[in-house]
Design a protein around this nucleic acid. Structure first.
Lengths: 343, 343
DNA sequence: AACTCCTACGTCAACGTTGACGTAACCGGC
DNA sequence: GCCGGTTACGTCAACGTTGACGTAGGAGTT
């Protein structure tokens, strides 16, 4: 087989030579532009086929007036996380339909990495970026945006202006979840949340507070655990809750890994039939657990589609005012959230 | 904010003008090449910073001798599938460490889509591709490979020569799983597999046959169900198995979605404590189900790392003979696979 | 028959960058 | 004071493509 054959890729020049026309005519034929006769078009096509010619999009975009690379960047926290993966897939699908490919990267919620990836994307002259912003300050994102890069934030809004974003009904759905638990008679409802630097965590916590207030319940600070990043930390925190003198009778777990950790502890302590749980974010197999887990499910394909639509529109020159699209989440009752308080 | 500001990106020419040097000197400074004095270097760096200059990798790679775009393509079946997502993440991590970004796409196991994506990647002059080949013929892949594109196949080997690939111990691990079930006294072990066009399905089935033979069991054709693509189809097939006069006492489910479907049916019929199950491919929360699911777990990070290493080496000009790397999978006992046959 | 207009091409330069090569200044050695 | 070598620049062309513009020939109009 061809090991380093170092065979040069054929160019329009080669095709032109073989077809006996000028380079410009080849360009016209390849791009389907008018100004090439039928017979010449056939000759050029045939020549391109025999040589195995493939257009060079990088050279083309360097020269073209619009400068498009037909490529966007997608920076999410962790592409192996089911939520991120589903979102990537949704964005990718819609982009591809417009002939746009996706350069994907994981930021690990790390500002340095996020900045480096932004620079790498910018060096490749992507047409725009879809970003799940790392928690905390957004200096690098703002800087990139101010350079003129079309940008859409997903999952978390920008802390700076002039930028589109797509989020879900974090606060409202959290409030609804808590109200549902309260309606079942629960008065000691715990909150277990992800890192406090994350906007989503804050919103969900606010929704929790609103729910308590609306239900006429008082907040017990002991029942609030935050900064739970990962399953292991969530397990520890959940265990602590049930070591309290007056443990919770219901849990609102504000992120999918937290939900998983909590479920594990409940099962270990054989509390899974008595303690109600509603989680934010669906996760695979939530319906197969015992009990099946009631969750607030984000419309991930909807979020991805909206993000893709927005970035593609901006790239196409849409200069209408920035949009903050909110895609509704829905409560999926499966059992764990329907356990009533012991009266 | 800057709506279509149409501000031109600064180029080396602009930096050169501001620093009062030639374009070539700017190039030297930006690329850290020798031949620029200390004072000039400082002036150029300062000018680049004031202008917000960003190198243009597409122009650079067009002109450079090595022609590298520092970008690879990754085409998997479905980026939202946990297995694919984890693999993408592993490849991405290792590529990024070498300054290489990843253009990712889902082929949906569709030849047309796979071919279109290959053409799109080739138009962007990626340095190489990592592909999970769509089932059936591999004409497009072979064609692309023969053009000289560095290529590594993952999960499934090529049907053509001269190409690296990375797979797991499909056959051996499947045989081991069946032998384990047989050792627990099971004589009616069913096989539930994904699409037969997939190489992995075939290998796992062969391993199943080998296991039966080695255990001295005879194959019962009725207990073999293939072409189960997706959870729903797997559920139907499983249900049929338990409507047989002599149903299986153990299941070997050869793909993760199939395992999920089977578990669902077992639970619905309250058989989950009596029928043994070993699944191929781990999946999130397998340990939280009741019973926890015994699986053959592939070393996904290991596969991704190996694939990344191979493609990067080939891109760097490694012309050693093609490699078929096999990354060992391991059996993870969790409970469902340790249920003994009723004697 | 002279005119305009259109079609089907071709020529040229430029996109942003780098490889090849040129050159002026300076150094050390004799 | 001249030579060879080195350092620190600069000039030029080219990577593959396309926008701007030129032109030859034919069709249609007056």
């Amino acid at each position: 087989m061809d090991q380093a054959g170092e065979r040069r890729e054929p160019t329009m020049r080669d095709v032109a030579a073989l077809a006996g026309v000028s380079i410009k005519t080849v360009s016209r034929v390849i791009n389907g532009l008018p100004g090439a006769g039928a017979e010449v078009t056939d000759r050029v096509r045939a020549a391109a086929r025999t040589l195995g010619y493939r257009p060079n999009l990088t050279a083309s975009s360097l020269r073209r007036a619009d400068r498009r690379s037909a490529t966007i960047g997608v920076l999410f926290e962790d592409l192996s996380n089911p939520f991120d993966a589903a979102l990537l897939r949704a964005v990718e699908d819609h982009a591809r339909r417009s002939g746009v490919l996706v350069l994907a990267g994981s930021t690990e919620d790390d500002h340095t990495l996020q900045r480096e990836l932004l620079v790498s994307l910018s060096a490749r002259r992507v047409d725009g970026v879809v970003v799940m912003a790392a928690g905390g300050h957004q200096d690098a994102l703002q800087h990139e945006r101010e350079r003129g890069t079309p940008m859409v934030l997903v999952d978390r809004p920008p802390t700076f202006g002039g930028t589109d974003c797509v989020t879900t009904t974090n606060r409202d759905s959290s409030r609804a979840a808590v109200l549902k638990l309260a309606a079942l008679g629960h008065r000691d409802i715990a909150f277990l949340g992800d890192r406090r630097t994350l906007w989503t965590s804050q919103e969900r916590y606010t929704g929790y507070l609103e729910g308590l207030a609306q239900a006429g319940l008082t907040l017990r600070e002991q029942l609030v655990r935050t900064d739970l990043h990962g399953v292991a930390v969530a397990e520890t925190a959940t265990a602590e809750l049930f070591d309290l003198d007056r443990p919770p009778t219901a849990l609102f777990t504000a992120q999918n890994l937290v939900t998983v950790g909590a479920m594990r502890v409940l099962r270990d302590r054989d509390l899974h039939r008595r303690v109600a749980v509603i989680g934010f974010d669906d996760f695979p197999l939530a319906d197969l657990l015992d009990p099946a887990v009631t969750v607030v499910r984000q419309d991930v394909p909807g979020i991805g589609r909206k993000a893709a639509e927005l970035i593609l529109a901006r790239i196409d020159g849409d200069t209408s005012p920035p949009v903050h699209a909110v895609v509704p989440a829905s409560l999926v009752p499966r059992g764990s959230g329907e356990i009533a308080a012991l009266s």
